[in-house]
Design a protein around this nucleic acid. Sequence first.
DNA 1: TACGATAATGCAACCGATTTCAAATTGGGT
DNA 2: ACCCAATTTGAAATCGGTTGCATTATCGTA
Lengths: 351, 351
Amino acid sequence: MKTVTVYDIAREANVSVATVSRVLNNTAPVKKETRERISALIEKYQFQPNALARSLIRKETGMIGFILPDITNPFFPEVLAGFDREARKMGYTYFLCDTFSTNEETLNQYERESQYISLLMEKQVDGIVMLGGRIDLSRPDPQMIREVEEAARRVPFLLLNGSLPQVGLNRVATDQKLGAVLATQHLLELGHRDIAAVGGYSAMSNTQQRLQGFRSAMREHGLQPRKEWMLQDGFSVEAGVEFTSRLLAMNPRPTAIFCLNDLVAIGALKAASRAGVRVPEELSIIGYDDIQFAANSIPELTTVSLKAAEIGRLAAETLHRMIGKKKVPKLLSVLPELVVRQSTAAVRKGG
Amino acid sequence: MKTVTVYDIAREANVSVATVSRVLNNTAPVKKETRERISALIEKYQFQPNALARSLIRKETGMIGFILPDITNPFFPEVLAGFDREARKMGYTYFLCDTFSTNEETLNQYERESQYISLLMEKQVDGIVMLGGRIDLSRPDPQMIREVEEAARRVPFLLLNGSLPQVGLNRVATDQKLGAVLATQHLLELGHRDIAAVGGYSAMSNTQQRLQGFRSAMREHGLQPRKEWMLQDGFSVEAGVEFTSRLLAMNPRPTAIFCLNDLVAIGALKAASRAGVRVPEELSIIGYDDIQFAANSIPELTTVSLKAAEIGRLAAETLHRMIGKKKVPKLLSVLPELVVRQSTAAVRKGG
DNA sequence: TACGATAATGCAACCGATTTCAAATTGGGT
DNA sequence: ACCCAATTTGAAATCGGTTGCATTATCGTA
């Protein structure tokens, strides 16, 4: 079960390995007769050139590293899928690097990021894309910063939906603020004035931007957000349940809730259902992200699409250009989109 | 910006590359003083050995190929996460190969599988794991079969939750029939007699096994499933809506529905909600798979957990053993588990 | 028939590591 | 001071391809 090499093919075809290589890559003319003889042998032995050897001398591997925080978070597979379709089309293969870390583990997420970046460099990837959105990307680990800097100096490095001001990285990101503006305006146009904003982590840049958008849209309508209706630090379904329960127990209570992501919105739906509050009749709920499930909740969730797949697609396209040493803008902005479904409705007059 | 190699280190340390390699891999004793001199240089230049060159001669890459049908299907990321945690622990990196294919594309899923397998072999992966569960894995493409056979001959190849009787592959799979028995028994114990079974694709082996489990559990209770309540060929939310709407329009209608996967069950929830039928008071609904969202639907979905993460974990562990040429059982069975939540309840007497 | 141009091919270096085998160094014991 | 064994080290082959340069074969034309 010896693996066959170019030498084996060359010997049996009575040519030099150089010629075999030429028909393999179509890199120089080869006499028709010779070419056919070699092709036949390649077919006969199902010969496949060893990508390691090839990459070693070519100094390009066609491999990319894709780093993300947690594949079971439903938003990320959408981005990944968009990336996958495009990257595949361009002939890249990618390593998936999930940096998810439980408390029991030795390494935290930053250390794992550093470790993966280092590993990817060793593997000689042609480029790296890192998907942000973790809790405290805003005050990251210095060791990780150094690793990113070093990597970015050596290979194309692209940051998705995150920011790392310490390093001048190329980025692709949705306009978070605009998304929040869209969501808030939708609620305002439905006549809501008493709007809560829940979810997110105050330390996260995306949360800050979304909140900024919320405030700015409110202000444009001459409204001042109420402090007690701004409940932060939580991005999970459970957090959504908790925040919303608290909100519903208040007096006065909001007529609409802007949830900073869909998971929180789903929690809100749940809490409303438990409290016997009908959505959207008595309470409008809007999410953010447009994860797949938003279309399947009951009622179906009105939300803001971050265009996850588009981010991924654009990432692949951009990284490819960077690898090809073409010029790309430092920041590519993707426009979010309002998706109106069933969980929002006009405010009841005299509620 | 020249990349530094063992030669550079060797020259500056006044030793041969052999010695550098020795301290790199700790593969032979090196005099303390020399070792320190070399280590210092490695540190100074942030030297990282080129994995391509190393793998080329070692004939092992630490790379694995992971093939799956569609990363946006919520079941798969769970499996992948389980695999990831374990594989990472053992020092493997993996290529993610998503074979999802739209009708507009040139290649169908089989062709893409073949293509990926071939690519992975070229990249010299140490092993391949393929996650089944596609529509017609039961009557696959001959070209794909050949490719799998060829690959399995050359590297460890593991099939997850699928079957390919044509090739004698090692497999890890949940006991699908048992899961269906568990679900059906749960319904029976709640007093239900009029049970429908909807969803799945008749041509898929997992559907056949689940249906088999359903029938067998019914028979054990002396019950005969009704043909008109067995609605197949659909695994999506939409299909679930459709099937359930039809069911609810029938007379008599079932008091409980066994959905062959969670997406269909969510569709069922939706249809019931639309029809004004309360779940679980008037209708019990049980799903299958236990995707993450099952815990977040309203009402929360009772379902059967396939132990997705466990399958993944076991896959990594098993593949590792295969790579190490250790003996592993041809089939590793994972036991499913009933997860009782809110969408099922005792049948109403005199309904 | 001879010549220069062009098409085909081969030789050998190279990519960046690991590893075998032999040589050089070191050290202990007498 | 000398010898043998144990410890360190280096030279060179190797993994499996690609590619620049030189050489040979082929062909149209003068």
